[in-house]
Structure formats: structure tokens, C-alpha cells
Design a protein around this nucleic acid. Sequence first.
DNA 1: TGATTTAATCGTAATATTGCAATAAATTAA
DNA 2: TTAATTTATTGCAATATTACGATTAAATCA
Lengths: 109, 109
Amino acid sequence: MGLAKTEIFSKSQNDIANWAKVLGHPARVAILQHLFKINSCICGDLVLEIGLAQATISQHLKELKTLGLIQGTVEGTSVCYCINPENWLKMKHILTDFLNQDAFENPCC
Amino acid sequence: MGLAKTEIFSKSQNDIANWAKVLGHPARVAILQHLFKINSCICGDLVLEIGLAQATISQHLKELKTLGLIQGTVEGTSVCYCINPENWLKMKHILTDFLNQDAFENPCC
DNA sequence: TGATTTAATCGTAATATTGCAATAAATTAA
DNA sequence: TTAATTTATTGCAATATTACGATTAAATCA
């Protein structure tokens, strides 16, 4: 069906999955890394930085915006993007908690 | 096209995306959480625990196995699954490093 | 042996994702 | 105003993902 049965899972489980999902494409990983590297808004040139068509980059930016990981402000003819610190931290805590659930006794098999 | 252009990204970026991707479905999140909760192998009853059909669970288990996050050993007519600690740690470090790249000066916009 | 149990695989359907050309929209520059 | 620049949106094609019924495979039980 291609459609996840989100209703049978908890909000927490869906949150973890949704944050992970948006990081699940190398283009979005690269965009976020570049924004951190610049450490300020970047106006334009993301298309040159990543090697994909303008329409494709725009689509990935939209997904990052929808989840709130980045924000864009119009600056003349271009748009300036930067990381949204609050939502990055929110994601970071949710995913870190998930990743830190390990203890590894595993006394079997 | 539905096919990510992985070749234009670094191995590191693809690794991050691939680990994130496997966590990008609530069923797989739930499976991993259950394995941690049990903290030992679980033989059977994952289908009952998660509310999806047996074929669907088996498919998700296969993805987790392919990435090496879980391992299964045959035990009679059933299969016992548990977390693979080495690969969990590997994933944890890769994703944690990515999540910790923040510093948040952001002196613009 | 034959029946039962359990998990993997196959086949199929429906939806999602990725990518890009073409176009539209919005702003600036001449 | 017109042209140029930049980003968003639309439309489409191809592949991926999700889900599940049916079947198969493998081991155990009677």
C-alpha cells in the first residue's frame, strides 16, 4: 500500500520515525550539513553546492521546512535559509533518547 | 524517479541517510523498542506485539537484518531475534555525531 | 508418516518518493 | 514598463515503500 499504518503506533513512535525519515535522504543530510558549515543564512547557491536540479533542491527544502528543521526568509529575489535551532534541538533530543536506550545485557542466543 | 542519486554524495552522507531511513518507519521503531524492553532474544510473538500482518513484520525484520541492527537465530520452529550491539553502537555514533554538529550562532535573518 | 506451527517468500495492489523539465510567481534592475 | 534573476510549483515518469493474502519451507509433534 505504501502507506504506513501510523494509527496503531504511539505518538512517540511516529515522532521518532518522522524525524528519522526526513534525515533519510543524502541530499537533505548534505543541505543541513552545509547550513551548519556556513553557520548563517545562505541565500542562493544551494543548487550549486548540492548537485541536483533546482526543482529537486526546492522540493527537499520544502520537506525540511515542513518539519521545521529550517526556516527561510525572503531577501530580494532570493531566499535565505538557516537551521531552526529550537526544532533541531527537539529532534536531537527525541532521536538521542531513542539511540541511548541501549544497555546490552543480551544474555541469550 | 524514486531513486536517490547516491553517487553524488559522500559515503558519510549516504551512511547517515541509510541509518536514518531504517528508523523512518514506526513499525521498525516499535520492533527495536520491544527488543530493548525485553532485553533478550524474543522468539515469536512480535506479530502479536506490533499490530501488523505476519508478512509485513517479516519484511520489516528483514530490513533491520539487512542493515545489521538485529540478528536472528533459528530456535526450533521459531526464530529468536535480538539487537546486534556492535551495529547499534555504530549507528548510534554516526547519527549522534550528525545530531551534535549544532552550535547555533546564526547571526543573521 | 502426516498434521501442526512458525517464519520467509512470492505476488500483487496502492501509495510515496525522487528527479527534472517546464512553467509560474515574485522581486530587482535597466 | 520590460528584461533578468531567483525560487516555488506543476506535471509527469520511474522507482521505492508499505501492506497483506497466499504459498512455501522448515522444524516439531502426534
